[in-house]
Nucleic acid binder design. Sequence first.
DNA 1: GTCTATAATGAGATAGAC
DNA 2: GTCTATCTCATTATAGAC
Lengths: 222, 222
Amino acid sequence: MMLKPREKQRQRAPSKRSLQTRERILDAAEMVFSDRGFEGASIRDIAALAGVQGALVHHHGGSKEELFFTTVARRADALSQLRLDALDARKASGPLDLRSVLACFLEPFLHKVFHGGSHWRAYGRLIAHVSADMRWREISAACFDPTVEVFLQELADLLPHATRQKIGSSFVFTVSSMLSICASRWRIESLAGETETDEIIETLLDFCEAGFASIRKPGPAL
Amino acid sequence: MMLKPREKQRQRAPSKRSLQTRERILDAAEMVFSDRGFEGASIRDIAALAGVQGALVHHHGGSKEELFFTTVARRADALSQLRLDALDARKASGPLDLRSVLACFLEPFLHKVFHGGSHWRAYGRLIAHVSADMRWREISAACFDPTVEVFLQELADLLPHATRQKIGSSFVFTVSSMLSICASRWRIESLAGETETDEIIETLLDFCEAGFASIRKPGPAL
DNA sequence: GTCTATAATGAGATAGAC
DNA sequence: GTCTATCTCATTATAGAC
């Protein structure tokens, strides 16, 4: 599999119209991929939603796998920057604690997902797909792991006696819980009843903060 | 969608050979569905893995959707019984606490996934697919929610001041974290390094117990 | 860059012999 | 109950006109 979106060296800068088409295609791909997963999505549906012909999707997006990668990568840098900026801002206003570090990772994402429009809402579900399927581990490694490493280091500083295993595992639990709000919100509604978004987010922060704080305790509660 | 595996009233009890074939087909379906998801799996691959012809898969499993439902449902009762038995046993030996309740839900599943052979390992990933896709919410409701309700009630008894919203949301976080060990173990290994299975399970229990216990505390830490 | 048309493949499902 | 053979449809991808 070729993950890198192919770099057929462009002769000319693409026209403005071309760029708009490309964005429309990526918007449509984001919707369809997030709704139905990689296999369930069809190029035809993406083309129809974008209002273009199927051949044009291939022209701008390459193969289906390349298109998927490009779709995920498109917002990844912006998301990472939001997270790192939040972390810097929090650092500037005093010493960090567990909750602050987790909030700087979780809140920029959840804010975009719930208040950033339908594109970001779809992007949240898209990332849930990526995170649950080993097939896309290269995408996770390329798009998200560098930022995750920064946060893991901050957590390690706050939990000097914790092993990397415990911190890493707990972080995956945190990310899974965060993504469950995107992909399994229906399940939350089904089990917990109608619930305010902001309340879920606060519950998530409470839950994960306490989970990490429990690493500090000496041993298993006996 | 017709979720119930069709009940074409059988004239005769199926032969032993027929039942074996049926099990082989379900075993194969379990493998292929869990590996590639519903859309990514093909009846042909399932048939090939089972060593039968494609037509036979339809004969025993019905449509692809019916086959998927049957595959998930096959082990669901056994799993529920393990969980409820564990809960009864723990109740018999003294008053319950948060960790015990969570352990009775998480450990039977994780024990089977990691020590129950390749079938259960596949089944774990299969449930992760079901849990992440709204399309299968009827399966979750039919196969898992009744048992989940029992555990939610136990948790509510231990957390008398908690809202159903907080308990339900936290439970979904717990389930998501549990399933991440099945579907995203590669991510844990990537971020946390090589990690013993039993250590991950203990970290999970610590994490979720602390998460639930945090509901007791008066308000957000300010 | 964008379109039409089509190639090439693989999918789910079924009919009917045995 | 199991097999062979086939139907029908949707898929990704590309060739080539404009």
